[in-house]
Structure formats: C-alpha cells, structure tokens
Design a protein around this nucleic acid. Sequence first.
RNA 1: GGUCCAGUAGCUCAGCUGGAUAGAGCAACAGUCUUCUAAACUGUAGGUCGCAGGUUCGAAUCCUGCCUGGAUCACCA
Length: 615
Amino acid sequence: MHIGGQMLTLQAIYILPDMQEIEKKIEDAVVAAVSEVTGEPFTGQVLLQETRREFEGDITVVVFPLVKLLRRSPEQTGEWLGAYLKEHLPEIDRYNVVKGFLNLAFTGAYWVSFLNDLLRTEDYGLKKAGDKSPMVVIEYSSPNTNKPLHLGHVRNNLIGYSLSRIMAAAGNRVIKTNIVNDRGIHICKSMLAWQKWGNGITPEKAGKKGDFLVGDFYVKFEQEYRKEVEQLVAQGLPEEEAKKKAPLLLEAQEMLRRWEAGDPEVLELWKRMNEWVYEGFDVTYKALGVDFDKIYYESDTYKVGKQIVLEALEKGLVYRRDDGSVWADLRDEGLDEKVLLRSDGTAVYMTQDLGTAVLRYNDFHFDEHIYVVGNEQNYHFQVLRVLMKKLGYPWADRLIHLSYGMVELPEGKMKSREGKVVDADDLIAGMIETAREMGEELGKLEGLGEEEKEEVFRRIGLGALKYFILKIDPKKNIVFNPRESIDFNGNTGPFIQYTYARIRSVFRKGEERGVIVPQTLGSDYLPNEKESFLTRLLARFPMVLADAAETDSPALIANYCYEVAKGFNQFYHDYSILNEPDARARDLRLVLAQKTGEILRTAMELLGIEMVERM
RNA sequence: GGUCCAGUAGCUCAGCUGGAUAGAGCAACAGUCUUCUAAACUGUAGGUCGCAGGUUCGAAUCCUGCCUGGAUCACCA
C-alpha cells in the first residue's frame, strides 16, 4: 500500500561510527597474536566486555580462555597480550592487568576522532529501510469494543508502538496494525443490556465518552446475568448448568446468531454502539500518542477464516463432528483438539485469527509478523502457528508472539466485568495532574504561556507513565499501585527529560553569548575521564538499538537512556561548559552536550516519549 | 496433573550467549545551590541472587530436582 513512496528513497550510505569497529580490530589482533605464538590458527572466541567503572580502561579482554592454550598464567597472558595490542593498535593508549582481565584504555585522540565522526553523522545509529529491507507487521492494541481501554491496554499499546519505532529505526519496513475485536458474544452482551435497560440513552445524552457508556452496559449485563444464575442455583440447578441456561445468556447467543445471519436490526444497533466506542478509543489513542497504518476488523476477517476452515474441511485437514462443529486435531503436535466452528456454524476466536493472518500475508508478504498480546494467550498463539502450518501455510513460522506480562493491582488482577480496573483515560489525566502540581511548585516555567506550560506538563506526565511501563522487561508481570503515584525522580522518564532540558538550556544561553558549536574538533585537547566515559556511552547506541530490535525489548532502550542521562549529569555537575575558559575544552564539551541531547531525544522517541525544552 | 513464565536489597527493577568485590532508583540517614536548571550531584546503610545438588579454573547466569507466585489447558475473546 502506502509504502511505495518510501521504497524508492535512496539509502544514505555512510559509515556509522561505533564501538563495533574497534572491537573487531581488537578481536582480530588477539587472534593474530595467539596464532603467532601457538603456530596454529586460533579459532576460539575472543571475549570482550566493557570495562567496569571501578577499573581504568574502556574495553576489557577476558584472558582466562587463552590461558590453557598459551600455557602461561593469567597475569602473564594479560601482560603479554596488552603489550602486543598496544604495539599493534594505535587506538590503544595504555593497559593494565587485574587478575585475568586485560583492561585497555583508548587514546584521547581516538575519542576525539569518534566525536568528529559523530559531528558528521545525521541520525546517528538509525538505519534507513530500503525496498529490500525486511517487512515487519506489528499487531498491537487489539481492543474489544465493549469497554474502555484500561491499564493492561496501556502496556500493550506502549510496547507495540515503541517496538514499531525500534524495528523501523533498525532498518525494517514496518506496518503498525490493529485488529478490532468488534464481534462476538461479549459485544452482544453490551448490546442486549442497552436494549433492555438503556432507555435510548446515548453518549451525548449521558455526557459520557462512548466507550465508557458501552462498558457500563457490559457490567450491567454481567450483574443481571449473575443474579439469574444465582436464582437458578437456588432452584436446584448445578452451577455449571445454570451458567449455560440463564435466559440472558441464551438471549445474547441468539443475538450473535442473528448478527452473523445479517439481521438488519441487530446490525444497526451494533454499528451504532461500535461507533460510540471508536470515538472514545480515538481520544485515548491520541492521548497515548499511538497510531496504526492499517486496521483490521474481526467482523471482516472471521468470514475469511470460515472460508479457510471450510476449504480445509474439504481437503480433509480438519473434521466435522456429529453435532456439526468443526475441529482440528493437533494431538500429533503435542497439542489438543481445537474447535474452529461451533455446532451452530458461528466462528470462534481462532477462526478469525486464521483469517486475519492470511489477509495480512496477502496484503504485505511480511518477513515477520509480531503479535503484541498478553501472556494469557500463549497457548492460543502456539496453536495458531501449528494450525496454520497444518493447513499448508509455509510462512506460519514467521508469526511471532511477543508475550508480555499482566499488569496487576495490589489487590490482584483487574477484572473489567466487575468494574475493577484502572481506566487509561483516568490514569493519563492523573499523571498529567501530578506533573502539573510538581511543575507549578518548582516554578521554572515562568515566562511561558498557559498553553505552553500545559504542553510541558502533558509531556512530563506521559513521559513518566510511558517510561515506568517500558523500562520493565515486557515478559515480567507488573504490580501497579495507583495510589502511590509513579516517581518523577531517579530512574524515570522525567529525569531523562530534565537532562535534555538542561542541555537545551545550555544552548539557549550559549546562543545569547554567541557561542557556536564547532564543525570539527582538534586533537590538542583530550577528553578527561568523565568526558570519555560519556563519549563511550554515546558510542554504544547503535549496538543497543540492534539488541533491542533483536530481542523485541524497549526496556533496553529505556535503560540505555537512563545510563546516558546519568553519565551526562555527572559530567555536568563536575565541569562547566559555557564558562570553561579553555576554548578547546569548551568546544569538546559543546559537541558532547549537543550529541548527548540528540541521542537522548532519538532514543526517547523510540519509546514514544517527547522531550521538553524546559522544565 | 500437563505446558509456559517469573522468583535478585524493605519496595520497584537492571544484570542472565558463564568471568573481576552482584548494580540502579525509591524509601531512610548525612552532605552539596551568589557560578550553564538541585526533577540534579556526592556519601552512609541495606544481599545465604527462592532452596538443594551438578557441570566448570570460574555460576545470579548453564543442567537436574524441589518450593513459591502467575498464566493457560472452553462450542469466551
């Protein structure tokens, strides 16, 4: 579809400076050194790691694995290898050996030349996608249209959106997509409740967002349904049976059959109530800052799914039971039997997901399709892959389930049918309110108009929320305590935004004084310890990005941002930039500050977090 | 019961393709603003890395067993 234009853009070709280059050189040199001594080509792995902060150096060679081969002690090996590397690699300034660790320190000139490379590089670390780049489809959000979005959806949306930014930045063509679960028994429940007890109410009349109004009726249905079940149980029915025979449920099931049969009355109500919900969702999506390239509706895809199942039935890949239901037997693959069509012929969840996958493949011929869906559906996606393989789709193994953990409240799991949820809208509003209170108290935004101030508070509030959620490894469960508001100090979004604001402030002041960032740095001033440490952090960005894309983890980006911000603040605390009398030192610090700001902004954009000029 | 995931400081989390004395933040305590933003910086205190074995020169990291918590195994989505 609309990727056509992008496909034709020329790919910029330049060398991205980063640590990988020098690491490769060191590896090669170690291999050469060892081979020279043993007289045989060395094929083992060279183990490099970043030098820990308490030791002097930039990069460390772990020499233990070489000890046996060389028949020397760890200390001797380290000393010998250190001398060899210093002699052969001009980038290496000095070395020291602690136990079995060879710490190498780069020359100041190396770091200066790295900063000069950085100065010449736009969009450092980002790879542009070309028309041959892998096509990655990312599905996230996937709401039901019977209730408002809650905290769980917030995590889903933030992970999905961030991941799409990360994949794009890593050089993939990316399609953000959403499947709207707009049909099914749960929707009928809300519709039925509205018919029975709604008295014709609308969002306008109620003065309520449409998604909340519809959600109210869903809760109402569950309440009334539970009453019916209790009554039946009181009349002597076993609970299991009562749950199946309650009149309200039978009515909802009848409504689903009428919907699927195309009953105009049901369809009209369905369209109307869905429209209310979409209007509500749009507000929430906008507030969260997420969007989609293409939206699929289950009400369309289930038909494709049914077709697929019927064709498979003809081919004998699945079978029909006596009661008319259609099943796939996956026991050979270590799974169970799975229903694909109910005995009344209606579709189930799996049916529509088959259809959606096929539609998407036809639309995009993806190389990878990532489903951002909670870990409660691990089994579903396991079945989906196996089933699609069985049905003869060779690309089935390109379907990846990015399974993330649940968001729980201190009192336990959220339950929307009981109304025990943290609504996304309320949560966002609360975060912005907290940001406003703190901001007003600090009073650093004098001189800004009300609208500008509001925008700053909005960005900070959302930054805190997004960072809080994204810094945690997706697969872990989160316990969220709404009463203890999310921190705005320490390892938080606002901390990083604040660091950026500090940097911007330096440049605002600098402009007033006519200070200009140099085009290039000379090598007559060499960076001190904190300066080269910060530079080293910046040099890691491309590798961090690649790692995050590889492991589908926005958390790696978040934690990297924190390290950079912390590194900058330590440097900033100890050294002055604008007031530095030595012009050469000032120039280097200007470059360092500018590039730190750029990288922080770029990296935070990958999390969907906006920076602020002041705070 | 089967399968999958998690268990690291009081709390929230990093670290997990094996490598140095297990790191941050919050909370607690003690310092640092006439100098580019103190939403910052520095320090103190806080750990049997769930438990027990095993592999290894070396294990929070790998293997086995167990314990705890969560998810799932529906003609719900």
